[in-house]
């Protein structure tokens, strides 16, 4: 590991993999709605009719966008642009 460029690339690769792993875990968590664990999300959240399952969908979409924003911000902070 004498090449500093390689170290930099490996650091960036690790970050890519971490973000992707978080994304994929969250993405496939949605499948839990179709298992018995999903029953916990079937009921309404708060005082209204909005179910936990629908809230989960909305939160996932917003979280994915948030993750991308964070990823871009980290890249920018390191002066990559």
């Amino acid at each position: 590991m004498s090449d500093p460029r390689l170290e930099k690339v490996q650091r960036k690769t690790r970050r890519r993999l971490v973000f992707t792993a978080i994304h994929l875990v969250l993405y496939f968590t949605f499948t839990l709605n179709w298992t018995h664990l999903g029953e916990a999300l079937a009921g309404p959240v708060g005082g209204g009719l909005l179910s936990g399952a629908i809230v989960m969908f909305i939160v996932l979409v917003l979280t994915f966008i948030g993750l991308e924003f964070l990823f871009l911000a980290l890249d920018k902070r390191q002066g990559e642009s």
Binding site: H23, Y27, S51, I54, F57, F64
Partner: peptide, 21 residues
């Protein structure tokens, strides 16, 4: 109803990975 959202999430889910990887 809700079950259709699996297609929405499926169609949306690739784009963050496209950016990360």
């Amino acid at each position: 109803g809700f079950d259709a959202l699996i297609l929405s999430l499926g169609a949306f889910g690739a784009w963050p990975v496209l950016m990360f990887m």
